[in-house]
Design a protein around this nucleic acid. Structure first.
Lengths: 150, 150
DNA sequence: CCAGGAAATGCTTATGTGTACCGTTATGGC
DNA sequence: GCCATAACGGTACACATAAGCATTTCCTGG
């Protein structure tokens, strides 16, 4: 986590941006919960535990900053909230793959990349050059199936 | 189109819902422009040409209704607007596949279904039962590539 | 065909996420 | 340590969508 923080600070400096306690604190929220899908409001609540005087505007500004630096990814599950998650960490793979349970709303991630052949086909047949993709699979998670909630 | 309208009326009656001119007019907007991806505001503007006294609230209420009846599908392109399009018409296939040009914002649809094997694998390994999916492929359309806009 | 009741509409107001503004505070190069 | 400038906190605003409520419209059964 410390190495992550150092990398972040260096990244800020390289972009001519200032290293502030608020930005560090917000990144900390993500590093402490890898794989979490947090809304702006949730991030706000978490950060305030360590940094009570932080403002919501700073949360939104920093989220946008982290997103531009490709440290977090934006996810829209169509539940009225935009969520954010830490990327895989390699800074290259921005592909989003999510399993969304229609009953309990749980979100799972999976990392497989099976769309390469499809994208090659689209490029050839339609001339559309795919550079990123986002896959949402909607269904019912194991727990909800076992609980007979569905 | 008339058969479509009759089917819609019957569908409403079967659900104990009333057939109103407003609902017919809104469905008409979609049937007149198959394949269009319309925002609520766009639908509002179109309907008012034929039905000037209609209210925006009715647009939203009817959109939700049509969505629940699976006559239209919700699409979120993360451009700040939620869009809606008429389904393929068979009433079964709700899968959404879109190519989104990152330069000009154009949206293309493609109908291929290549995720079946992936979904079977997920069910087996994670116990997650997939019932629907949504695929967004982000890239650059042929025109933008030719125009050297990218 | 008409009357009664419920559902739908239209208008207005509320909600809630996200952005803009602006005076104040903190960062970092000299 | 000083000073310009970026970043912050608080608030007000903008926007899409939902809710409330009185009025109108649809439909069923006499």
């Amino acid at each position: 986590m410390t190495s992550n923080q150092e990398y972040f600070k260096e990244l800020l400096r390289d972009h001519g941006l200032k290293v502030t306690n608020q930005r560090i604190a917000i990144l900390e929220v993500f590093t402490r919960q890898p794989g979490a899908h947090l809304t702006a409001e949730e991030i706000y609540d978490y950060v305030r535990k360590d940094y009570p005087e932080i403002g919501l505007a700073t949360i939104y500004r920093t989220i946008q900053l982290l997103s531009e630096l490709h440290l977090i990814d934006k996810i829209n599950l169509d539940d009225g909230y935009v969520r954010y998650e830490m990327g895989s960490g390699d800074g290259i793979n921005h592909h989003h793959h999510h399993l969304i349970c229609l009953n309990c709303g749980a979100v799972f991630a999976f990392g497989e990349d099976m769309l390469d052949s499809l994208e090659a086909h689209i490029d050839k047949s339609m001339g559309f050059k795919v550079v990123d993709h986002e896959v949402k699979l909607l269904g019912y998670c194991r727990k909800c199936q076992e609980d007979n909630d569905v």
